[in-house]
């Protein structure tokens, strides 16, 4: 069963992602929320069994790219997949995220189908 961590400074976007997960009938045991990279790292320390992170890029305190780099210091891509969910759709930002260790990239606005397709390879 999946244990997800959603990282976004917008509570609206966290709710939208949760709704899309339900619509796509992706089986989720627990969803944890964080509003920036620092909170996400704290959540991961307290919940080391998280098996997928969905993270925004542009956030206060610690952005999504720095979060990916920090997570990759201890968890490789195949152990803890990270998918960026962001309005930052430019090639340069996408490259930075993938080079930093992100597994995938979903641009907002997205349709539920686009979103669930991007998640499928990483959920049970």
């Amino acid at each position: 069963m999946n244990k997800l961590l959603i990282v976004d400074d917008s509570s609206t976007m966290r709710k939208i992602i949760m709704r899309v997960l339900r619509q796509a009938e992706i089986p989720v045991e627990t969803i944890l929320e964080a509003s920036n990279g620092i909170e996400a790292l704290e959540a991961l320390t307290a919940n080391p069994d998280v098996n997928l992170i969905l993270s925004d890029v542009n956030m206060p305190e610690m952005n999504g790219i720095d979060l990916v780099k920090k997570v990759r210091e201890s968890k490789p891509k195949d152990e803890l997949p990270i998918i960026m969910v962001t309005t930052e759709g430019g090639d340069s930002m996408r490259e930075q995220a993938i080079q930093g260790g992100a597994n995938g990239y979903v641009c907002k606005p997205f349709t539920p189908d686009t979103f669930s397709e991007a998640l499928k390879p990483y959920v049970d």
Binding site: S10, T12, K108
Partner: peptide, 27 residues
């Protein structure tokens, strides 16, 4: 805020800065 964020992100990708380099503020 999220709606403004998506509008600006879309404008950035489509017109202002397709190749990257621009930065966006938080709303």
């Amino acid at each position: 805020g999220e709606c403004a964020n998506m509008l600006t992100g879309s404008l950035k990708c489509k017109a202002l800065d397709p190749s990257g380099g621009f930065t966006l503020s938080t709303p």
